[in-house]
Every structure is written in C-alpha cells, then in structure tokens.
Simulated assay, not measured.
Amino acid sequence: MAETSRQTYFLVVLSCILFVSVNGECPADKFGDECQFECHCSNGVCEQKSGHCPKGCALGWSGPSCQKQNIALKRRATQSSTFCEPTGRCFNASYSVDGSRDQWLYAGSGCSHTQSSSYNEWRVSWSEEHYITNLVIYNRKDCCQEDLNGFRVYVQQRNGTRVLCYNDPTSQPIRDVIHVRCDAPVLGTSVTITLSGGDDVNLTLCEVEVYVCAAGWYGDHCENQCTGPQCQQCDPTGTYCQDCAVGRFGKDCLGLCHCYDGVACQREGSCPGKGKKLCARGWTGSSCSTGKSLTHHLQNNPYLIFLTF
C-alpha cells in the first residue's frame, strides 16, 4: 500500500485461478462442452455431450442431434391466387406448411393450389433473418407432376430485395420430392416459389420445408459443430463464422470486443459510431484492441483495486 499527498492507491495482485464446478452436468435442456447448445427433443431431454434425443426430435426438428429446423412449418403463407371447387373447398397456401406430407390433392389436408394464370407465386415468411440454403418440395402424386417443372425459388432480404436462389430446368423427369439447394446461401426473411408459362398454368405444392441449422451447427443435416463455442452461426461449410456471440469477433470468434459502454463490435472488431468515445476505457486502436498500460489505469483511476482470482 502506498500513499501520496492527495490520493491513496491500492494494488492487490493475486496470481491465482479459481475453478468453480457445480456437478459437471448441464441442465436437462442444454448440452455441449460448455452447455452452449439447446436440446430439441420431443421430451425436452437430451444426452449431455452429443445432444442425441433417445425419444426423437421435437416437431419441426431433425438431424443426428436434432439441430436441423424446418422454419417454414406453421408459418404465414400466401399465394397469388387460390383455386376453389364449386363445393366451396379451397386449396389455401397454408396447406403447404401444415406439416402433412400427403401428396394427393384431395386427400387429407391436401395441397396448396393456385388458379390458372400465366404467372403464379407462393410465399412463406418469418420475422427473423435466416441464411437460406436447403429446401424440400413435395410435389403432388395423383397427376400433373410435370406441371411444376421450371419453377424458381427466391429469397427476399429485409430491405425488400429478391435474390434468385434456384432456377429449375423446364425439362425434368417426374419427381415426387424435389431437393433444392440454393446456388449460394442468402440471408432473408421469406422464400417465394414462382411458376410462369402459358395461360393455363397453376402452382400446386403439397408441402414445402425450409431448413436451417441451429446456432453453432452446419452441414446438410446440421451434424457438425461450428469452430468455437462463441460462434452463433457459421457458413454452410464451417469454414468461417458468420455471426459471433455478443462481445466476440474474428474468424473463429476468438477476438474480444472492447467498445465503449458495452456496445457490440462489428465483424472485423471495430466499434460503431463516431467521435472519441468508441473504445472502452483503457483500450485504443482502430479495433479497440490495444490495451493501455497499468500506469495509465492508476493515473486515471486513483482508487482502483485489481483483484484476480
């Protein structure tokens, strides 16, 4: 302890590391080395390390660890027109996201079906943004399967821009189930399927499933973990992280943000805004990654006590 004429400085440095362990287990609805992943099991309980669900995945989830989600399920769906029979039965857009894979137009909940037109479209949307890569489309089986040839899939971004995801060739063999992979992942809030041609064209979809991986997972079946527990979403190949946890940045989210007042930093680590107060106290540089010396801290924080356990 040292004392000056105006202020007293206390500096206590303890070079100890405190390990805290409760019981080494995650809560029933979490798993992973740091309990960072959510379980998506039918009964809410999964294996602590792998996330495997002995009793199966919850509705809308699939994959080895139930980390693959169908974000189209039960979401809001619309279409350019709706075909209705004289009896009053209509084939609404919502029939394509009701969870039923029945592929007969008149059986079960049926399929969505537009009126005949030179241009038809069907859309499913959600409020949050997702990187869209994979879709599965269930075509009708009772007849007219070739009518779906030549469809297009678009992903609409939050700013309203519509990006082409997939362009189906007009000449295709009959397909009961169509697996679609976007030419490149697109961040968006809705998926639109369009079909155009002559005047006697209608768009019939029995079920549409749009798949994304839960935070921290990638792969066709969301079977692989992204590098590092701080990565919320990596690219479909797992090469780099697209979305780090709050307070992190960098390829594997290993960088720590040091922005003023706890503001989240940008992907390259820089702090948003203008002016002098961009970095947290004690940090400088273009990405606020340069720490100031201990002498500087003491001079600007006269009663500062450092405790490291």
Rank of each mutant, 00 (worst) to 15 (best):
L254K: 14
D252P: 00
L254W: 05
G275D: 03
L278I: 15
L298S: 05
S293G: 08
G269V: 11
G285I: 13
C253R: 09
T290R: 10
K276G: 06
A264P: 14
G250S: 11
L254N: 13
Q266A: 04
G275W: 06
L298E: 10
S289H: 13
E268N: 15
K251W: 10
Y303G: 14
L294G: 01
C257K: 03
A264D: 15
G291E: 15
T308L: 05
T308S: 03
L256F: 12
V246H: 07
N300I: 00
G275Y: 04
G250I: 09
C265M: 13
G262F: 03
H296T: 13
L256D: 14
S270Q: 14
P272C: 14
G255I: 12
L254S: 15
L294N: 10
V246Y: 08
G269C: 09
C288A: 04
K292C: 02
G269W: 11
H296C: 02
H258Y: 01
S293A: 06
T284G: 00
G275K: 08
A264I: 02
C253W: 09
K274H: 08
N300C: 02
R267S: 12
L307F: 11
K292F: 00
I305N: 07
Y260K: 13
H296G: 05
G269E: 08
Y303R: 13
G273K: 08
W283N: 01
T290Q: 14
N301H: 15
K292E: 13
L307N: 05
A280G: 13
G285T: 12
Q299F: 07
D252V: 08
C257G: 08
R267M: 04
S287K: 15
R248T: 09
C259V: 00
S287A: 13
L278A: 04
E268G: 12
L307M: 07
S287V: 14
G247Q: 05
I305Q: 10
W283C: 03
G250D: 10
K277G: 02
K276F: 03
N300Y: 07
S270W: 13
V263T: 11
R281V: 11
R281I: 10
L278T: 12
Q266D: 06
H258S: 01
S287E: 11
G269K: 09
D252Y: 12
C265S: 11
G247R: 06
K274L: 05
F306C: 03
C271M: 01
D261Q: 15
H258T: 00
P272W: 14
C279W: 07
Q299E: 15
G291H: 04
L294S: 10
L256I: 11
Q299H: 08
K292V: 00
